[in-house]
């Protein structure tokens, strides 16, 4: 088991190198001159050349890549051409905000999706099943930015129950920075008021975001539960007189979970990339909003940084899912 984990971790390195190469190539080979944009329309050629030298953009591409990769390892992720802030510092602030949103959405999706899928499978081809199919297809089809907008109109503008956007009000004192997750930080400092405020701000964006993983988890859970309910061992258990509830919760649920787990792992990465839309609607100060601003101004160091962070988390979450397989399903042996 330990050798397996170690081997998988070592195998991540070439993937990360490939990822950095790919992202770097895309960022540098595209048309558009960020230096020209940053220097402004009235900059003289000498000023542009100075700026290019300052950011190391006058060197040949392989040298630029080498400098970038060695920087990545040592914690120097480059600098934004516009704000002149270090990308690594920015990421430290924005990543927890996005992760907090993604994890909350994922938590909601799992909490609702697994029982919903189980119910649909047990009542297969009866009305709860049809309901769950229509609702989950509808949920997948709903543009997250439109849903976000509708939630804002309903809950923030008309009812006034929840805040319109943002992460924490400027008028309140945020909890002391420990992890960057406001929910955790406020609990650590014992500030229940701040915790409540944080949850209020999280509610609408997290709900807008959880809908499509919720739908997918429900459908995956339904399909795998149906498959397992038809296995011979379930029939044997029935013949032995075990109660339906015991069979369902002790034997079926555990086996049906392993297929669903893959989807959950894939979705963490997908949600991270997709936060852009929800963050734009709710003005959530996370990676997505940061990336959008950088993309519009063709400020490529932040774009590369965000892409590598998201790609890296995606790779790691897939690894965790693979390892969890073994715990849920003893048939999978690691060699």
């Amino acid at each position: 088991m330990l050798t397996y984990i170690l081997r998988r971790i070592v195998l991540i390195i070439p993937v990360l190198i490939g990822l950095s190469l790919l992202v770097f190539a895309i960022a540098r080979l595209l048309p558009g001159d960020p230096i020209q944009l940053a220097a402004g329309p009235n900059a003289s050629p000498a000023e542009i050349a100075d700026l290019a030298r300052e950011f190391g953009l006058d060197k040949p591409l392989p040298v630029q890549y080498w400098n970038y990769v060695t920087g990545l390892v040592t914690g120097d992720w480059g600098q934004s051409i516009f704000t002149r802030r270090a990308v690594a510092e920015d990421l430290k602030v924005y990543l927890p905000a996005t992760l907090e949103l993604v994890f909350t959405a994922m938590f909601l999706a799992i909490l609702i999706g697994i029982p919903a899928g189980l119910t649909a499978a047990v009542y297969r081809n009866r009305w709860p099943d049809y309901m769950s199919r229509v609702v989950s297809l509808g949920a997948i089809s709903m543009p997250r930015f439109f849903l976000g907008l509708l939630l804002q109109i309903g809950f923030a503008m008309w009812l006034g129950w929840l805040p319109l956007g943002g992460r924490f009000p400027l008028t309140e004192d945020p909890p002391a920075f420990v992890t960057g997750f406001l929910t955790i930080d406020s609990l650590i400092s014992g500030d229940l008021r701040a915790f409540g405020i944080t949850l209020q701000y999280l509610a609408l964006p997290a709900f807008a975001m959880c809908l499509s993983p919720l739908a997918t988890i429900t459908r995956m859970m339904r399909a795998s539960t149906i498959e397992i309910l038809q296995q011979d061992y379930v029939l044997t258990e029935r013949a032995l007189g075990l109660s339906s509830r015991l069979i369902l919760f002790k034997y079926v649920l555990r086996n049906a979970m392993s297929a669903t787990l893959t989807v959950i792992g894939l979705y963490v990465g997908w949600l991270l990339g997709g936060t852009v839309l929800v963050e734009t609607v709710f003005d959530w100060p996370g990676l997505g909003l940061y990336a959008t601003k950088a993309i519009v101004t063709q400020d490529f160091m932040p774009v590369i940084g965000v892409t590598i962070v998201i790609g890296g988390i995606f790779i790691i979450s897939n690894l965790i899912v693979d390892l969890l397989y073994g715990i849920l399903n003893p048939k999978v042996r690691y060699e």
Partner: peptide, 12 residues
């Protein structure tokens, strides 16, 4: 598949 497709599409 590891590169977030929406961010890639936005950048391009």
């Amino acid at each position: 598949l590891t590169v977030p497709s929406l961010i890639l599409a936005m950048a391009v």
